[in-house]
Amino acid sequence: MLEGKVKWFNSEKGFGFIEVEGQDDVFVHFSAIQGEGFKTLEEGQAVSFEIVEGNRGPQAANVTKEA
Rank of each mutant, 00 (worst) to 15 (best):
T40I: 13
Q45S: 11
T64N: 11
D25F: 05
N55Y: 09
E21W: 07
K65F: 07
K5Q: 05
F49C: 03
A61Q: 10
V47H: 00
E3H: 15
G54M: 11
G22A: 08
F27S: 02
G37W: 05
F17G: 02
L41T: 03
R56A: 12
I33E: 01
I33F: 06
F49D: 00
P58R: 08
E53P: 15
Q45N: 10
W8N: 04
N10H: 15
A32L: 03
A60G: 05
K39M: 07
F38L: 13
G44W: 05
E50K: 11
M1P: 10
S31E: 06
I33G: 02
E43Q: 14
E21H: 09
E21N: 12
S11Y: 13
N10K: 12
E50S: 14
R56N: 08
E3T: 11
V28L: 07
L41Q: 01
K7R: 10
T40V: 13
G35E: 09
E50V: 14
E43N: 15
E42L: 11
G14E: 02
F27R: 02
F9K: 02
E3S: 14
S11T: 14
R56P: 13
Q45A: 15
V47L: 06
G57I: 04
N55S: 12
E36T: 10
E66A: 08
E53R: 12
E43G: 08
N10E: 07
V28A: 03
V28M: 05
G37L: 08
A46G: 11
N10V: 07
V52L: 06
A61H: 14
S48F: 12
V26T: 07
I18M: 03
L2A: 15
M1S: 11
K65A: 12
W8M: 06
E66P: 14
V20I: 10
N55P: 10
H29W: 10
F27Y: 05
E43C: 05
D24K: 12
S48L: 09
A67F: 10
Q45M: 06
V52F: 07
I51M: 10
F49S: 01
N62C: 05
Q34A: 15
A60K: 00
G16S: 00
E3C: 05
K13S: 06
Q34F: 08
V63D: 01
E43S: 14
N10L: 10
G37S: 13
E21R: 15
E3K: 15
D24Y: 09
E50G: 14
G57A: 05
F17T: 03
Q45R: 08
I33Y: 03
E3R: 15
I18F: 03
E21C: 06
V52S: 08
G22S: 08
A32F: 06
A60D: 00
M1C: 04
D25Y: 07
S31H: 15
I18R: 00
S11R: 12
T40P: 03
F17H: 04
S31Q: 13
M1Q: 13
G37M: 10
I51N: 03
A61V: 06
F30A: 05
H29S: 04
I51L: 15
L41G: 02
N62E: 05
D25T: 14
W8V: 04
I33H: 01
A60T: 02
G4Q: 01
T40E: 07
N55A: 10
S48P: 00
Q59H: 12
N10F: 14
G54P: 03
G22H: 09
G54L: 09
I18A: 02
F9E: 00
N55E: 08
K7W: 03
S11D: 07
D24L: 07
V47T: 03
P58F: 10
